[in-house]
Design a protein around this nucleic acid. Structure first.
Lengths: 346, 346
DNA sequence: AATAGCACTCTAAGTGTTAGAGTGCTAATT
DNA sequence: AATTAGCACTCTAACACTTAGAGTGCTATT
C-alpha cells in the first residue's frame, strides 16, 4: 500500500472540516468529509484523523458523538497555513467601485460607502477608520478670526482630509497678522506630517533668536491648541442587519454581544489604530480578541494608504465562522481602491 | 348605586392596560387591572369594559382567552389623550448634561453624545440629525486656492456648524481676489440663511449693472457650486445593543427588522426632515410608519433650535411598547440642551 | 348596573418516545 | 502496519401528549 504522509492528510482533512463548517454552519461528520474526498478515504480512517486533530486542539465536539467544529486554534492554523485566497468576480469589483467612486468629492460619503461595500460583498459587518490626521501630510492651512477672541484654523492634508478647529486665543491678532502666519506656515510645513508639526516648530523655535522669534512663537502657539488634531477618530459602520442572516445569531445573547462590540467605538478604535501600524491583513479570531469579552467573533483588518503612506484602516467583523478567503481578498481590494479614491480627492 | 361615567371609566381602564403592558410586556388580564384599582372595581366589570374597548379596536387579544394588549390605535389614543409626562430626575438630567456639555467644542462629539444620551436615559435607540445647513444662518465665509484649478470654501454658521467644500473652478483667481470676494460676502450675507443665499444673490445680480457686476457674478458662481450645501445629512445613532434588553426582541425576525430600519438612513432622514418642520414632539406608532415595513416599532421625534430657529431634529426608536411619557420628556429636555450647547459653540 | 360563579379555551411547560446522525472500539482486511 | 468494516453506544432534535393555570364570556344573582 502506498505510504501516506500523516501530517499532510491531517492538514487536508482540517481544511475540509473548516470549509465544510464555514459553508454549512453545522458540525461536520466523518461521512461528509469522506464524500468530500469522493470516498477515497473511508469514514473510519477520517474518524481516526479527527481524533488526532481533536487531541491537538484544532477541532472539537459540541457534545459526545456529534460532528466536529473548528476551534479558534483550528481557524488560526487554517488562515495561517491552509487558506487559499478567493478572487473577486468582476461583478463584485464593480459593486465596490460603484460605491466608492461616487465622485461627490465628499470624504464622508466615500467612507460610509466603503463600509457599506465591505458588508455588502462579504456579508459581514464593515468598518472604516477615517484617515489618521497625525499620519497625514500637511498641505495647506488657513487662519481667520471668528470673533474677538476666537480663531478658526482650517488644515488640508494631501489625502484630501480637511480639519477645522475653533480655538480661544487670548491675544487678538488682526486678519493681516493671521494671513502672514498662515503664509509662513504654508511655505514652511509643506510635506511635514501633522504628527511631526509640533516637534518641527519647537526645533525651529530653539534655533531662532532674532525679531522673527515672536512671530514664530505665535504660529507655534496657534498650532499647539489641543483640539486641532483631536477628534479625528470617526468610525463608519455598516451591515449590522445583514449579519443577522448568519445562523449563529439565532441566539439573542450572541446578537447582543455582537452589537455591543460594534458600538464599543473605543475598543474598535484601539484595535484598528494598533493594527494600522502593521502592513497588510491582520486577523483576530474569537477569544484572541482580548480587548473585549467578544467571543465567537472574528475581526479582519487591513491598513490603507494614500501616496504610499498608511493613513487608516478598514475591517470586517463577523462570526468566527466566516469566509476568511473572501473577506481577506475583499479588504485588500477595497483598501487599495479607497486609497486611490482618496488620492484623487486630495 | 352611584352613577358612573362609562366613557371616563373606559379611559382610565385603557390607561391602566397600557401602563401595565408597557411595564410588564405581558398581556394584561382583568384581575391585574382590578388590583391596580385596589379592587374597587371587580374583574367581571373590567371584563365588560375590556370587551367594549376591544370592539373599538383599542386593545386586542393575542389569542382567545388571553389577556389584552394595546393596539396601535390604543397607543395612539393613549399618547393623545391620556398620557402624563414624567419629570426627569436630577440624576437623569445630570447624565444628559455631562454627555452633551463636554466642551470639546467639537460638534461631532456633541451629536454623538446626544444620541448616546437619548438611548442611555430612555433605554431605546437614539438618533440625532445634524443641523440642516439650509436652515442655518450664515456667519462667515473664507475662500482660498487649493491649487491652480480648485478653490476651497469654508462656511461657518451661527450654530457653530462648519462646512468646507472643494470645488473645481475654471478661471484662476488670485488669493487677493478671493479674499475680496470673501470680504464682500461676509459683509453682505450676515444673517441670511444658507438656503436663501442663492436667491438673495441672484436678486442682487439683477439689480446690479455697473462694473461691480462681474465681481458679484463671480461670487455667485462660487456659491452655486453644487457640493457646497450638500452632504449635511449625517445621522448619529446609538443604542442598538441596549434595545435588545426588551423582550420583544427575543424574536430574531423583529431584531432584524429593527436593525434594518436603523440602517435605512434614507428613510430615517426623510422622516426626520419632515417632522422637523413641525414644532415639538411627533409620534409615529407601529404601522403608522408607512415609510418602511417597520412594524411593532415606534418613532418619537423632536426638533431642536439654535437662536430660536429650528435647525435639526432628534429621535428615539423602540418597540411600540415604550414608555412614551418618559421618552417625550427626555427628547424635550435633550433638544433644548442640545440647542443651548450649539449656541455656545456658534 | 355590578358582580359572583362556572364552564370553557388556550398556552406554556414539562414528560416521554423515537429516528437518525455520529462516534469509538475491535476485529478483519489489504 | 495501515486501513476499513462492523457494531454497540451516545446524544440531539423533533414530535406527541399531558397538565396546570391564567383568562375569558356568559348567566344568574345581588
Amino acid at each position: 500500500m502506498k505510504k501516506v504522509d500523516t501530517e499532510s492528510r491531517q492538514k487536508s482533512i482540517l481544511n475540509a472540516i473548516v470549509e465544510s463548517y464555514v459553508d454549512s454552519a453545522a458540525p461536520v461528520g466523518s461521512r461528509a468529509i469522506a464524500q468530500r474526498f469522493r470516498n477515497s478515504i473511508s469514514p473510519a480512517t477520517i474518524r481516526n484523523v479527527m481524533a488526532d486533530l481533536e487531541e491537538k486542539g484544532l477541532i472539537m465536539q459540541p457534545y459526545t458523538s456529534a460532528g466536529r467544529v473548528p476551534t479558534d486554534k483550528g481557524y488560526r492554523f487554517y488562515v495561517d497555513s491552509l487558506l487559499e485566497l478567493k478572487h473577486l468576480t468582476k461583478e463584485e469589483e464593480s459593486i465596490i467601485n460603484k460605491l466608492i467612486r461616487q465622485s461627490t468629492s465628499d470624504i464622508e460619503y466615500v467612507m460610509q460607502n466603503a463600509s457599506k461595500a465591505i458588508s455588502l460583498v462579504t456579508n459581514v459587518a464593515g468598518v472604516v477608520l477615517t484617515p489618521r490626521l497625525k499620519r497625514s501630510i500637511f498641505k495647506h492651512i488657513e487662519l481667520f478670526n471668528m470673533d474677538d477672541s476666537r480663531i478658526m484654523a482650517v488644515i488640508v492634508t494631501t489625502s484630501g482630509f480637511v480639519k477645522n478647529s475653533i480655538m480661544d486665543f487670548e491675544e487678538h491678532l488682526t486678519g493681516q497678522e493671521l494671513t502672514r502666519i498662515a503664509e509662513f506656515l504654508n511655505s514652511e510645513l509643506e510635506g511635514v506630517s501633522l504628527g511631526e508639526i509640533k516637534s518641527y516648530l519647537t526645533r525651529k523655535l530653539l534655533e531662532e533668536r532674532d525679531s522673527f522669534y515672536i512671530f514664530l512663537k505665535r504660529a507655534t502657539d496657534i498650532l499647539s491648541i489641543p483640539g486641532l488634531f483631536k477628534a479625528d477618530d470617526h468610525l463608519y459602520f455598516d451591515g449590522a442587519a445583514c449579519i443577522m442572516s448568519h445562523p449563529e445569531f439565532t441566539d439573542i445573547k450572541k446578537t447582543r454581544l455582537f452589537l455591543r462590540a460594534c458600538e464599543d467605538k473605543k475598543g474598535l478604535l484601539n484595535l484598528l489604530n494598533q493594527d494600522m501600524e502593521l502592513e497588510g491583513i491582520k486577523i483576530h479570531i474569537g477569544k484572541e480578541n482580548l480587548y473585549n469579552e467578544i467571543q465567537d467573533l472574528s475581526i479582519v483588518t487591513c491598513n490603507y494608504k494614500v501616496n504610499d503612506m498608511t493613513v487608516g484602516a478598514i475591517a470586517a467583523i463577523g462570526p468566527t465562522r466566516m469566509e476568511y478567503g473572501r473577506v481577506i481578498s475583499v479588504l485588500k481590494y477595497i483598501s487599495i481602491e479607497l486609497g486611490k479614491e482618496l488620492e484623487s480627492l486630495g
